[in-house]
Design a protein around this nucleic acid. Structure first.
Lengths: 123, 123
DNA sequence: TAGTAAAATAGTAATCATTACTGATTTATC
DNA sequence: GATAAATCAGTAATGATTACTATTTTACTA
């Protein structure tokens, strides 16, 4: 895999923000430094970064995926009102992961915990 | 809200299956009893049932949503290979939910735990 | 049991996120 | 600097989901 300025910029932006932006939001931001970048490039590199394990994809069911460069074990809180995703320090417990692993369904590569509700700004 | 045969049939099919079908799979099955049903009707009723809390929507990030009429507390295992969703008895712990509630982000209406990997049929 | 208004439907068109394609540009190597 | 592979920008295509509209069904009442 070759180096690419665009990919670097996408990752930098993701690491700099506490939000959990969608591909389009990432595109808007990276465009400030690379005005000619195309949305397809953003998608392609996000997929790459997710496959490399450097970025996490968060599926909330709101119609678009969210991305997070913080790959440490943590959970997310999703507001069904403003569609924002926030970090939570809660993590899937070792017991839960072990239990999922020993259920015999297959390998467990990722455990993801998502809480949904209405955030305090939206109440 | 009025009764509708189509909505009833969608719910019946969902309750009868152990799979976690997508809207299109539901459509294909319900069509056996209601050949004239339209995909839009399936989507509209799924949204309704989810809002009523009678059906759960499962977002795996595979490009389409999955649905589950079992609304009891349980988790899911997702095979990134065959894209099937399977049930797991593991549940978010009381501690995790309490911890999420007390984090002060907002209300917690739903806690969802998803394990991803490669199922034994795909290994 | 027919008459009526609200709710739901089938069918189709539109939207929007994401992916695929292509010819031009950039990166790594020699 | 020359070359091949990787990546890109731009655009077209795909596919899931939603919106729209004229028709049918449901619930209610005379």
């Amino acid at each position: 895999m070759n180096y690419s300025r665009q990919r670097e910029s996408i990752k930098e932006y993701l690491m700099s923000t506490q939000e959990h932006p969608t591909a389009d939001v990432i595109y808007q931001h990276v465009k400030e430094n690379y005005p000619k970048i195309s949305l397809g490039t953003v998608y392609r590199n996000l997929t790459l970064l997710v496959d490399l394990g450097e970025v996490r994809k968060i599926s909330t069911g709101d119609g678009t995926e969210h991305y997070d460069a913080d790959t440490s074990a943590h959970s997310h809180y999703y507001c069904r009102c403003c569609h924002r995703v926030m970090d939570l320090e809660v993590t899937p417990s070792v017991d839960q992961i072990l239990s999922a692993s020993s259920a015999g369904l297959g390998t467990v590569e990722m455990a993801s915990l998502l809480f949904t509700g209405v955030c305090k700004d939206c109440i």
